[in-house]
Structure formats: structure tokens, C-alpha cells
Design a protein around this nucleic acid. Sequence first.
DNA 1: TTAGATGCAAATAGTTTGCATTTGT
DNA 2: ACAAATGCAAACTATTTGCATCTAA
Lengths: 148, 148
Amino acid sequence: MATNTEKMIPYCMSRLSAAGYKATAARKIVLQALCELPGHCTSADVLNKVNQMGSDIGRASVFRILELFSKLSIIRPTYVNGSTPEYVLLPKNGHHAHIVCPKCNKVTELKICPFEPQLEQIAAQHEVQLTGHILELFGYCAACSPAG
Amino acid sequence: MATNTEKMIPYCMSRLSAAGYKATAARKIVLQALCELPGHCTSADVLNKVNQMGSDIGRASVFRILELFSKLSIIRPTYVNGSTPEYVLLPKNGHHAHIVCPKCNKVTELKICPFEPQLEQIAAQHEVQLTGHILELFGYCAACSPAG
DNA sequence: TTAGATGCAAATAGTTTGCATTTGT
DNA sequence: ACAAATGCAAACTATTTGCATCTAA
């Protein structure tokens, strides 16, 4: 839903296989849950969603799957508020950007990420093969701004 | 140490006061610990450091202080590996950028952040008052790269 | 066929809360 | 003087682990 589920699921499942992991039913369902959940979601959100979907995948498996997906940069954990990670699904291009208000914790997703050329350069300089990135901006939203 | 402790501490303490919070001894010591610890650190690291420094600030206070500092964008929690947040101290200019290897979790800090002009523009578009940002790049390091 | 993935339940680690006491302004 | 911050210990929540069972390749 959020990120073109129909294409995202087979794409990610094939990435699993390509990396030498099994394309299991549990992994597919967690992926589907991630796609159908809006934007940021916690492990608990995923667990609930998966249960709602009629699957009885266990807590432990959900955690293991989220960890694997993170390792493959299919998702990435971020901190917005509270002490549990919120996962974001990285689209095929690997870009994610959002603004968090440090006062009310409101999150605004940014559609675009204008930093392509610079990223390539950084990747080359540091000899890394980029798989994705997250830009987190912190700033008071209009409602919380000290200035008004 | 990492970020010019001598200037950082009074600067941050005055930000506390400016925001209406008390400039307490405990907060100053936690700040000092954060400055002296290298790069990324967990709540446990801070707690240990604080104890090493001869202070007996309680666990709960450390957590409360870290939360407050996060709210003020003095530090920000990030997720690199495991399920506990790693805090980074944001320098005065609010910039932090690093590369995480999704395989071995090695973190490379980036000195520079070349995105100033675009950030200003985004801030204006979304009517937010930026206090800092973190750019997280995910990519295989030379040692872990599938290509070699 | 078999290495790898899952489910369960118990163990662990990390974080939060309530309340009496202390401290900065 | 008083609101705010702290320390303690108990409560809570989230995550991990071990092991038997199951499943994709």
C-alpha cells in the first residue's frame, strides 16, 4: 500500500533468496504486513498486523525476521519517540527522509530526497557500496515552534 | 573530547536554562560523560562512564536526562545494531552523518555534511524550525562488499 | 535430505514509575 | 519557598534464547 505492495513483495523475496536466505511463508507475511502498515511501525505493530491477517507467526520469529530485513536494508529501524524502534520500509531506491518535531514527536515524511549526486561521491570516497539511507531532520513543527 | 568539551558543556547548559529546565549537577555530569565518550554510546555506556567519574546518579535519572537532551536535540538516539539506542551528540551546528555496514555493523563517522542549502529549503517548505539532523547511510564496507 | 527457519515458553535486559527527599532559582 | 529534579526499588515491557519441530531448496 504505502510502497507499491504488488511489486515490493516479490522484489524483496527475491532479494532474500539472492542473499542465501529461504523465501519462507512467515517472511512473506511479515513483508506484506510492513507494506500495508502506514509509514513507521514498531515490532508490536507488525505483530498485531500479522495476527489480524490470520497468521500465527510467533513473537520471536517476527523479531528475527525484522532483524534479517534490517540487515538486508529492506527496512531500517529509526528512533522517533519512546524506547522502541520504529521501522521504515525502504523503497527500491533506498531513500527515506522525514522530519521529527522534538516537542510533539510528529513525523512528516518527505517524498523527495535531493541528495543523489553527493551520496555517490561519499560512497566512492569511503569505498562503500550503498544500499540505502535515511535522512532524519529534527525541527519544531509550526504548532510547536517557539517563534510561533 | 569528541566535540570540544570545554565549549560544549556551558553551551548546552545554557540551552537547558533557556528552555526552562534547571542546570543541575546531574545534567552537567551526564553531558560531560557524553562529551568524553567516543562517538556513539548507549544508556549503559553513559551510566558506566558517570559511575567511573565518581558520581552516583541513578539509572532512572540517566534515562530521564537522556530523554530531555534528546528532546532538546542536544543528542539524538539512533539504531545501529542490537535493540538499544545509540546516542550521538549533535555539535552546535546540529549535523551528524555516518555510514553503517549492514553486515558487520561497522560505523564510519562522516566529518562533513554537504547538504546545508537544501536543508534550508526543505525547512522553509515544511514550515519547521530545524534544530539538527542525522544522515544515516547504509552500505557494505570494503571488507563486507559482495563485489570484493 | 538436510541446513535453515519457526514456535513456544522461559529467561534476560532495558526502561519506566511512584513516591519521599533534595536542589536550583 | 517552591516547583522541579533526583534516587531508590519495584513494576513493566520489549527482546532474546534454547530446543524440539517443521519446511524450502
